[in-house]
């Protein structure tokens, strides 16, 4: 399969990339290409120009700063999954990265590309939202920070302006006393999630002092399970308390996605089952 033809640009700096994105008509940013190139081969996307940001050195790499991970947009899933810093400061993110696609996909696919693509079945969004953090985007008027909570706005849609480029992803790390877990059901053919639940739980003095729970895959964008979080906060992480909280995990889901493989009702059911697994494992890891 061949994509429709396009012009190809390979800027050396972010400023040059932003300039190209602002001036070339119907241009798209090429990161790892593992969503964009297939979409172009199927002619679901027909950009007139690709701006390849794969050779801009400052866009790759992982730094730890004040308990947060600062990850360059072009950092691959494989690099995140294998990073000693990510494993030490945010093991949940390393686990999520390691679940994406397969080794060859992880060797090319990037965190910036994945979050901008905003696929409802992607692994990063529910985990990033559960962990908390922000996206740094650069446009013609400089750089701005977008909280994960406001980044994904609709199906395959983000808060980015058409001439903005994601340069960095900042993720809150966690340490002793806090555990994170991701429970998902993958589509047996594609490996994409049908539904995934990401939980980050802090346990202090025998009770859950902080609970973060996000459901992905059931709706166009990941949804925070606020009712379940509130139900478990301040309670001991017992099986009964976790089950009672997980039963509320789908309360924030309206109009769930349904297709020939998994109906909306089934996804709502999965949200509760997977929330229970994620909360149970996260609480166990916190202790």
């Amino acid at each position: 399969m061949f994509a429709a033809n396009f012009d190809y640009y390979r800027p050396a700096t972010v400023a040059e990339a932003v300039q190209l994105l602002s001036t070339k008509e119907n241009a798209k940013i090429l990161a790892g290409g593992h969503s964009l190139i297939p979409a172009m081969k199927y002619r679901l996307a027909q950009p007139s120009a690709l701006i390849d940001i794969g050779r801009i050195p400052e866009l790759s790499g992982i730094r730890v700063e004040g308990g947060k991970l600062r990850i360059g947009a072009m950092t691959t899933h494989a690099a995140i999954a294998a990073s000693a810093d990510v494993k030490a400061h945010c093991p949940l993110l390393a686990e999520a990265a390691d679940k994406i696609g397969d080794q060859m996909v992880r060797n090319r696919g990037t965190i910036g590309g994945a979050i901008v693509h905003a696929d409802p079945a992607a692994d990063y969004p529910p985990n990033l939202l559960a962990l908390g953090g922000s996206v740094t985007a650069v446009g013609p008027n400089g750089s701005r920070t977008i909280d994960f909570a406001g980044f994904w706005t609709d199906l395959f849609t983000t808060a980015l302006a058409p001439n903005e480029i994601v340069t960095e992803v900042t993720v809150n790390g966690y340490g002793k006393g806090t555990g994170g877990a991701y429970a998902d059901l993958q589509h047996p053919a594609s490996g994409y999630i049908v539904v995934g639940a990401s939980a980050v739980v802090t346990v202090a003095n025998g009770v859950c002092s902080k609970v973060s729970l996000v459901i992905g895959g059931a709706t166009p964008n990941p949804v925070r399970a606020s009712a379940a979080e509130a139900a478990l906060t301040g309670k001991a992480p017992t099986a009964e308390n976790i089950a009672a909280a997980a039963a509320l995990a789908a309360n924030g889901i309206s109009n769930p996605i349904g297709d020939s493989f998994a109906s909306g009702d089934y996804r709502v059911h999965l949200a509760k089952v997977l929330a229970k697994r994620a909360l149970t494992q996260a609480a166990a890891r916190a202790q």
Partner: peptide
């Protein structure tokens, strides 16, 4: 590609 396994149907020659 530079020592890492990749799916060459999803990489452009220009990349």
């Amino acid at each position: 590609l530079d020592g890492q396994a990749v799916k060459s149907c999803t990489v452009l020659a220009v990349q």
